[in-house]
Amino acid sequence: MSTPSKAGVTALAHANPEPTERELPGDTLAAAQRGERWARRALVHTYQGRVHALVWRLLAGAGRQDQVEDLVQDAFLRVFQALPRFTVAGPARLSTWILSIATRAVIDELRRPGPRKTPLEVVEDELAGGERPDVHSERRAMGRAIEAAVASLSPEVRAAFVLRAYHELDYAEIAQALEVGLGTVKSRLWRARAALQEHLQEVRQEARR
């Protein structure tokens, strides 16, 4: 995996965190459920990267990245409202549970008409150390192709793909998060893969010319 650039990145840093930072310790979770401030803060710190990355990817396709921060905040407020009901012995890991809540928050938002359109902010990534400019350019093109492919999907299909590809949820967890059956999850992932394949093929053909 390449080193994330300082200015921007971090796809995998967000999407594929180290196992040690994956879940909140049990005692901290219990304290957060009691409403203790330090523990709630710890919870936000532990999961904010993943929630932010998820929300950003789900909104990017809709051109509504300017809503990311508000929705991350909204998602955490929903988490805190429901946190006393979360049980460690339940079917979902805390991270999965939080990502499910965030996903629903975003899908709810995407079903509503969007606010005024704002021009996209273009963030120029710094070159990763030792990376050749042409390689960097190709990576960026691929990144844009994936983003475009995901953008072409409906919010529900997009959510299934992002949860699977970037957040390691298994099919049953995705089904639970999206409140659909396993067959629907498979169908959505199939569609997402097809869209992705199509867009990436275009980019590769363009690169060969």
Binding site: M1, S2, P4, S5, A7, G8, V9, T10, A11, L12, H14, A15, Q48, H52, A53, W56, R57, V68, E69, V72, V123, D125, R139, R140, M142, G143, I146, E147, V150, A165, Y166, L200
Partner: peptide
């Protein structure tokens, strides 16, 4: 390839 789709920091 999937990692090429990056997320800006908040």
């Amino acid at each position: 390839l999937l990692a090429a789709w990056t997320v800006p920091e908040p």
